[in-house]
Amino acid sequence: MTDQREVVVVRWPEQSPSADSGLAGLLAAYHLRTEAEKGQAVADVDGLPGRYRAEISDPRAAFVGDVVLVALSGGAAVGCVVVAASVGGRSEIKRLWTDPEFRGRGIASGLLRAALAGAAEGGVSSVRLSVWEWRVGAIALYERFGFVVTESWDGRERLVCMECVV
């Protein structure tokens, strides 16, 4: 039987101790999956690049000044997104991730909707992001929210850069 509990999006770390405990696990899963998809699979978090290990071990320090939203289902963290602090009226979305067991329930859409609304309320005029070209489902999601492919600001091959006016 599928669990159909309500999903609530909260701003981390202010609103929920359970979001606190689940964020590191979501970030670990995101980075481990990404490295595997890039053909650089590692056995565990210790094999990740230092900058990713830092996010997982101390999200408060890694995302200081940023907005982190966490989706909760029955008190468990099942999704997250980071909205980087605005620079010059532009913000960046990073680390949009939904636990694979909870996909197909609109969690990523809810997180993205909340992230864009929060950015607009904060006076941001545009939001950008980068996504690996093989993540076609994510690209389609971003396009549904008005993101368009733009000139790359990142030199990594196979990375698609997108932007949306909010």
Rank of each mutant, 00 (worst) to 15 (best):
I107A: 05
W97T: 01
G106Q: 08
D99G: 03
L116V: 02
T98F: 09
A119V: 01
I93Q: 11
R90A: 11
L116I: 02
S109Y: 14
G89L: 01
K94I: 02
R95H: 08
A114F: 12
E101Q: 14
T98K: 06
K94S: 13
E101T: 10
I107P: 00
F102W: 12
I107V: 11
G123I: 00
R105I: 02
R113F: 13
A115E: 05
K94M: 08
R105P: 04
A117N: 14
K94P: 03
A119T: 01
S109M: 12
G122S: 10
A114T: 11
G104Q: 05
R113I: 09
T98S: 08
F102M: 13
S91G: 08
S109T: 12
A114K: 11
G88F: 06
E101M: 14
A120Y: 12
G110R: 13
G106K: 05
A120G: 14
A117G: 13
A119Q: 04
G123K: 04
K94V: 01
E92A: 09
G88Y: 08
R95E: 03
L116N: 07
G88C: 03
G118M: 09
I107S: 05
R90S: 14
A108K: 02
A108V: 00
I107E: 05
G89D: 03
D99Y: 05
L112K: 07
L116Q: 07
W97V: 00
S109N: 11
R95M: 02
P100W: 07
G118C: 13
L111E: 04
R95K: 05
A115R: 00
E92P: 07
L112T: 00
A120C: 15
G122R: 08
R113H: 14
R105W: 15
A117C: 15
A115G: 08
G123M: 00
L96F: 12
E92M: 09
R113L: 11
I93M: 11
D99V: 00
R103K: 07
A108H: 06
F102C: 11
L111T: 00
G110H: 14
A114D: 13
I93F: 10
G88Q: 03
L112N: 03
R95Q: 05
D99H: 09
P100V: 00
S109K: 15
R103E: 07
A120F: 14
G104P: 02
L111R: 01
S109E: 10
F102Q: 14
R90T: 07
I93N: 11
L96H: 09
L111D: 02
F102S: 14
A117T: 11
A114G: 11
G122F: 10
T98D: 12
R95Y: 08
F102L: 13
R105E: 08
G104F: 09
E101A: 14
R105T: 06
G104H: 05
K94D: 10
E92V: 01
A117S: 13
K94F: 13
A115N: 04
F102D: 09
G123N: 04
F102K: 15
A119P: 01
R113A: 10
W97D: 03
K94W: 15
A115V: 00
I107C: 04
G106F: 08
G88V: 00
A119D: 06
R103L: 01
A115Q: 06
R90H: 13
R113E: 15
G110A: 14
G89T: 01
